[in-house]
Simulated assay, not measured.
Amino acid sequence: MTFLVNNPEEFAADSLKGFTAAFPNHVQLVHGGVVRATESPRGEVAVVVGGGSGHYPAFAGWVGP
């Protein structure tokens, strides 16, 4: 059997670390998730949506001030 995660308890943290390492110009890691690495243009809302296969990972949600 192929394992896609090292430690299931660290899955979310490992995923976020990988995501921020892959896109450092776009997002940065903060407690509880990620934020946009740059300021949103005035009058625009930044939206981050996660997804996955089946029921997990669940959707990430909205990002704002």
Score class of each variant (00 low, 15 high):
residue 48 V to L: 14
residue 60 A to E: 00
residue 28 Q to V: 10
residue 9 E to L: 10
residue 50 G to D: 08
residue 50 G to Q: 10
residue 25 N to R: 14
residue 2 T to E: 14
residue 39 E to W: 04
residue 16 L to C: 01
residue 41 P to Y: 11
residue 36 R to P: 03
residue 59 F to V: 09
residue 8 P to Q: 09
residue 63 V to T: 05
residue 56 Y to W: 12
residue 22 A to Y: 07
residue 13 A to T: 07
residue 57 P to N: 06
residue 14 D to T: 06
residue 10 E to L: 09
residue 55 H to L: 08
residue 6 N to D: 15
residue 39 E to M: 10
residue 65 P to C: 06
residue 38 T to W: 09
residue 15 S to Q: 03
residue 32 G to L: 01
residue 1 M to K: 09
residue 35 V to P: 00
residue 33 G to R: 01
residue 36 R to G: 10
residue 35 V to R: 01
residue 30 V to E: 05
residue 43 G to N: 12
residue 60 A to D: 03
residue 19 F to A: 00
residue 59 F to M: 09
residue 29 L to Q: 00
residue 4 L to P: 01
residue 64 G to F: 07
residue 21 A to I: 05
residue 50 G to I: 03
residue 29 L to M: 12
residue 9 E to I: 05
residue 31 H to Q: 11
residue 54 G to I: 04
residue 27 V to W: 01
residue 19 F to G: 02
residue 54 G to H: 05
residue 57 P to W: 02
residue 33 G to S: 07
residue 64 G to V: 08
residue 33 G to M: 01
residue 15 S to G: 09
residue 62 W to F: 11
residue 25 N to K: 15
residue 36 R to T: 12
residue 62 W to Q: 10
residue 35 V to F: 01
residue 28 Q to N: 14
residue 40 S to E: 12
residue 15 S to M: 05
residue 43 G to Q: 11
residue 33 G to K: 02
residue 50 G to T: 07
residue 25 N to Q: 15
residue 6 N to L: 08
residue 44 E to N: 13
residue 30 V to N: 04
residue 55 H to A: 11
residue 55 H to Q: 09
residue 58 A to M: 07
residue 43 G to K: 07
residue 2 T to C: 09
residue 49 V to S: 13
residue 30 V to L: 04
residue 24 P to R: 10
residue 61 G to W: 00
residue 32 G to F: 02
residue 22 A to P: 00
residue 23 F to C: 04
residue 55 H to E: 07
residue 31 H to P: 00
residue 3 F to P: 02
residue 59 F to S: 14
residue 5 V to P: 02
residue 34 V to D: 01
residue 58 A to K: 05
residue 7 N to L: 07
residue 33 G to N: 03
residue 44 E to G: 07
residue 57 P to I: 04
residue 9 E to N: 09
residue 60 A to Q: 01
residue 1 M to V: 13
residue 57 P to G: 05
residue 40 S to T: 15
residue 51 G to R: 06
residue 24 P to Q: 12
residue 41 P to N: 11
residue 31 H to A: 11
residue 32 G to S: 06
residue 26 H to N: 15
residue 42 R to K: 14
residue 11 F to K: 00
residue 6 N to T: 13
residue 45 V to D: 14
residue 4 L to R: 12
residue 58 A to G: 10
residue 9 E to R: 08
residue 1 M to R: 10
residue 11 F to G: 00
residue 46 A to R: 01
residue 2 T to G: 04
residue 13 A to Q: 08
residue 19 F to E: 02
residue 52 G to R: 04
residue 2 T to S: 12
residue 14 D to S: 08
residue 3 F to Y: 15
residue 65 P to G: 08
residue 49 V to T: 14
residue 46 A to V: 13
residue 65 P to K: 08
residue 62 W to G: 05
residue 22 A to G: 08
residue 50 G to M: 10
residue 28 Q to T: 13
residue 14 D to G: 03
residue 15 S to W: 00
residue 52 G to N: 07
residue 57 P to Q: 06
residue 49 V to L: 14
residue 23 F to Q: 04
residue 56 Y to A: 08
residue 22 A to M: 11
residue 21 A to Q: 14
residue 10 E to D: 15
residue 28 Q to W: 04
